[in-house]
């Protein structure tokens, strides 16, 4: 009994300690971003690695999600004779929810895990330590550009996901199921609001980008420097950032769209 309590206490302390380390880490990383201003190439290379290399999976997923939305939306709407509103339904679902959320989940699996593994391996092969001894701060040189790149790439990817998704919905709805093309687009144009929907979706995707990348780089930087430690950290990145995205989505949705 006492033993159990002791374990509980120890693991609670451990969690808080990690949280503390994570926030301190974020602080130093943000401070390191200043030193990147004269060297935008470092960030660009990482935007390529995290963003461009995730593009294919994002585009393909966006297309399929849009197509499924088209099918499902049509089946429901047609019962009420409202199939002309298909465009609105597809666009709003994508811009408000599915775009940011699904992109963030895919981003965590594709780019987040790669970031954790890369940084974890750099740690376990003493490359980070070596940089420190060369008076190069790894937080500014390695972590900060990756963090910034993730925060930049995520909203762009989410926007592309939504755009391709709308196209997918269009192919299925207008192309296959015969929804009126003019109605599809004009209703969408009339109902999707820039402030209300698009800006809020962008805010969401920026928030997700920051959280996923923060978790990914921290897990890598804080991992136990062995092969097992790196693999565990990679798994944790995917699990924790997915959960964080879904939880944060609820909070943000409640704040943005709750009356």
């Amino acid at each position: 009994m006492i033993n159990m309590l002791q374990k509980l206490g120890a693991s609670t302390l451990g969690i808080f300690e990690r949280l503390g380390r994570g926030h301190l880490f974020l602080y130093y990383t943000l401070r390191g971003i200043g030193s990147l201003l004269p060297r935008p190439n470092l960030v660009l290379a990482q935007v390529y690695a995290t963003g461009v290399l995730s593009l294919i999976i994002i585009l393909v997923s966006g297309l399929f999600v849009g197509m499924v939305l088209g099918l499902q939306g049509y089946n429901t709407l047609v019962d009420f004779g409202a199939e002309e509103s298909l465009g609105v339904m597809v666009a709003l679902s994508l811009v408000r929810e599915l775009g940011p959320v699904v992109t963030a989940l895919l981003f965590a699996g594709r780019a987040g895990s790669a970031l954790t593994a890369e940084i974890g391996l750099m740690k376990s092969t003493e490359q980070l330590s070596g940089m420190e001894m060369m008076a190069v701060d790894p937080l500014a040189r390695v972590i900060a550009p990756r963090f910034l790149a993730g925060a930049i790439a995520m909203p762009l990817l989410a926007a592309m996901f939504s755009a391709v998704g709308v196209m997918g919905g269009y192919f299925v709805g207008v192309g296959l199921l015969g929804v009126d093309e003019g109605a599809f687009w004009s209703q969408m144009q009339a109902s999707v609001d820039v402030d209300e929907d698009i800006i809020n979706g962008v805010i969401k995707s920026i928030a997700f980008g920051i959280v996923v990348t923060w978790i990914a780089v921290f897990e890598g930087y804080d991992c136990i420097p062995t092969s097992e430690g790196v693999s565990r950290a990679t798994t944790r990145t995917v699990v924790h950032s997915s959960l964080a995205v879904l939880g944060l989505d609820f909070v943000l949705t409640a704040l943005m769209f709750g009356e």
Binding site: T125, E126, Q127, G130
Partner: peptide, 11 residues
Amino acid sequence: GMLFQSGALLT
């Protein structure tokens, strides 16, 4: 300068 036992080269 420090020469690491493992080399610690950037891979």
